[in-house]
Write a protein that binds this DNA or RNA. Structure first.
Length: 683
DNA sequence: AGCTTTCAACTTTTT
DNA sequence: GTTGAAAGCT
């Protein structure tokens, strides 16, 4: 946000200085939202509130990290470090690690990732069909996000898949409980249940925070809203920041009802709209406003800017994805030649679905232009990283069966499907975890000979590693331990054998070393790791860092120094901006997205897709190209494509009106107000 | 019994 | 271009 003003405008000031009661800040795209949050934090510190009693909650780790960096610039490293700045999910972890025992959860519980959950459902549901298991997973997750239990889910189920999912839900939950494991949704749901049920825990957490700020409220789901309600004591002031026009996570259970409920539940709620945009030129903003004006409004809000009209938005028509990628590369090269985009990082390609990245990756690689794909497969989703994560998870919770299965079979150590299946049956009969089964004296009755020896060797290896991981404290000790462990399990060799091609193996190994370094750094002093705060801010053991492993999903520090083009989904682009944006694949079926189902899109779906378009347009600062396709591939066949309805909705054909009188008046008023606050606007 | 190779199907968005 | 499940090989 380099073009943000040095001073704050009147609305921003009002938001920052309203400290006494509940506050809702409707922050339009590019209106200086993060700036307001950070300044408000600074203001709260000025009033004498201790940093750890200020909680700022975001949705992504990246946003939390960015917030902390911005805070550091304003309030200094000491205070910035002590702020309670976390995602909903990591706050949930913190609550459960401290108080989970009150609802029967051991402090060393594991967090299952999406793949683990899928595997559980496949097994519990007796299905090998991945797509079907994914539908079950999807349904269960959505129900949990809505706060429904198994019986309520049974009533809500509308299809055969959903009815099956509801039937599986209790068994799924049992399985998780037996492993002392939770899924992502439980990280919100269980803390809520805890705070609702347990007076003492509720008192503790309500007293913990003197002011709660929530970023992107429009993305909260019903359960998160309830959790906030429990967290904020009746007299605790809070600041909710969001934009109803940028609500794009309905599919994940987010609901705009929360914004509506906010004013009902808090009659004293002060609503402040930030409408001045400091990011985009007039042409871009008018296109954005024209599109979003088709949606029914929750709050009246219209963005305006002082940055001038700029370059008109361009729509281009391409033959297919390959052609589109070529045009994007050509566009980038033209901008660079004209000096419009001095850095590669000034340019981004945005698209609806991850697979669209492929064509762009190809053409960029052919042109030898460095790029990074965000919002695609995360670093932690890579097979090699998941292998290592499985081991780490196992260290702090040996009952974590999904981790056990993965660690026992990678690298190959002679323990195969048959042995594991036998062990699994035995464990099921004994009602214990795989690890406990392995240690059981009576195991010899079912697993004999070589297989038994190998299992025991694995168990011993694990216990030995566990012991040294608890002892390895501090960065260098951690690094040494992890390196030695990788040697012991011959992981590098495993990568060489498992990957085809020397280069691929090398790339994977470099991911592994990055990962080791990253863990080690987290063990060092002063790194303010989420799991190991407050109690001891000094050095952390590998075992302690391992506890939060499933939760930490982005490795933002990595490769950011390099100047590269960004390829990103529209979802992952929210909150970011670039001077030049290429919005790809603006065709019906893709944006708005329409799956293979025959059913027509519901108005609510179209509205959410429209908001996605709005988010895409408003990422651009100076230039925007929207591209459509004449043909697209679907499966094996090539089908005709039609321009997205949202292209017409931008009204690019209309004579663009100059800034109207009402808006000019408002702007002058704002400026005047800003001046009277004692600081003149820059420029 | 375990591991490796081949053949097939499928691709929205994420903590 | 990727992943997963069935068939052959050691």
């Amino acid at each position: 946000m380099s073009e943000a003003p040095l001073s704050l405008n009147a609305a921003q000031m009002a938001a920052i200085h309203h400290l006494s009661g509940p506050c809702l800040v409707l922050a339009g795209a590019g209106s200086g939202k993060t700036r307001v949050i950070v300044h408000k934090i600074a203001r709260l510190l000025q009033t004498g509130l201790e940093p750890q009693r200020i909680a700022a909650i975001t949705f992504t780790n990246k946003a939390a990290q960015e917030m902390r960096e911005r805070a550091r610039d304003l309030v200094g490293p000491q205070a910035a470090r002590e702020l309670t700045l976390s995602t909903f999910h990591s706050l949930g972890v913190r609550i459960l690690r401290r108080d989970g025992h009150r609802i029967g959860l051991k402090p060393q519980f594991s967090i299952l990732d999406a793949d683990d959950v899928l595997a559980v459902l496949r097994e519990v549901g007796g299905s090998t069909d991945n797509a079907q298991a994914r539908r079950w997973q999807w349904a269960i997750s959505l129900w949990k996000n809505q706060g429904l239990d198994a019986s309520a889910a049974g009533r809500a189920a509308a299809s055969d898949d959903q009815r099956m999912a509801a039937r599986l839900m209790p068994r799924y939950q049992e399985r998780l409980a037996a492993w002392q494991a939770v899924d992502f949704d439980d990280l919100i749901g269980l803390p809520l249940a805890l705070l609702a049920r347990d007076d003492e825990a509720r008192r503790y957490w309500q007293e913990a925070f003197g002011h709660v700020l929530v970023d992107e409220v429009q993305d909260t789901n019903a359960v998160q809203y309830e959790l906030l309600g429990r967290l904020v004591a009746a007299q605790t002031p809070f600041t909710a920041v969001g934009d109803d026009d940028q609500s794009i996570y309905g599919w994940r259970g987010a609901t705009l009802d929360n914004l509506r409920r906010l004013s009902q539940d808090h009659p004293r709620l002060k609503v402040i709209a930030l409408e001045q945009n400091y990011r985009s030129t007039g042409h871009i903003l008018r296109a954005a406003n024209a599109v979003i004006s088709r949606n029914p409004k929750l709050f009246e809000k219209k963005l305006w800017s002082e940055l001038g009209d700029g370059e008109p938005v361009r729509v281009i028509e391409c033959d297919n994805e390959e052609h589109e990628a070529e045009r994007a590369v050509a566009r980038l090269q033209a901008l660079r030649a004209q000096g419009e985009a001095p850095r590669l990082a000034d340019f981004a390609v945005l698209y609806r679905a991850n697979h669209q990245a492929r064509a762009f990756e190809h053409k960029l690689r052919a042109a030898q232009i460095p790029y990074r794909v965000s919002g695609g497969q995360s670093f932690f989703d890579r097979a090699e990283i998941k292998d290592l994560c499985a081991w780490l998870r196992l260290l702090h919770n040996p009952s974590d069966d999904p981790a056990f299965l993965r660690a026992a079979s990678t690298p190959r150590r002679g323990i195969g499907q048959q042995t594991l299946a036998t062990l699994g049956e035995f464990a099921a009969r004994q009602r214990c975890s795989l690890f406990d089964a392995l240690m059981a004296p009576s195991l010899g009755s079912v697993v004999k000979g070589r297989a038994q020896d190998l299992l025991h060797a694995f168990g011993r290896e694990l216990l030995a590693l566990q012991e040294s991981a608890a002892a390895a404290r501090g960065e260098s000790a951690a690094r040494e331990l992890l390196r030695r462990w990788l040697d012991d399990i011959a992981y590098r060799q495993h990568l060489q054998d498992a990957s085809d091609g020397e280069r691929l193996a090398a790339a994977r190994w470099s991911n592994v070393t990055d990962f080791v370094d990253w863990i080690a750094r987290r063990c060092g002093a002063d790194e303010a790791a989420e799991g190991a705060r407050a109690a001891r801010r000094g050095e952390t053991s590998v075992l302690e860092v391992a506890q939060t492993i499933s939760l930490i999903l982005s490795l933002a520090e990595r490769g950011d120094e390099q100047d590269q083009v960004t390829l990103s989904t529209l979802h992952a682009a929210k909150g970011l901006e670039w001077p030049h944006v290429f919005l790809a694949g603006a065709i019906e079926g893709l944006l708005p997205f329409h799956g293979s189902q025959d059913a027509a899109l519901s108005p609510a779906q179209v509205e959410e897709e429209r908001r996605l378009m709005y988010v895409g347009i408003t990422r651009a600062r100076r230039s925007l190209v929207v591209s459509t396709l004449r043909r697209r591939r679907r499966g094996r066949e090539v089908v005709l494509a039609h321009p997205s309805r949202f292209v017409a909705e931008m009204r690019l054909d209309e004579v663009q009106p100059r800034e109207d009188a009402r808006e000019r008046l408002r702007r002058l008023r704002e400026e005047l107000a800003a001046r009277t606050q004692g600081s003149a606007p820059a420029g």
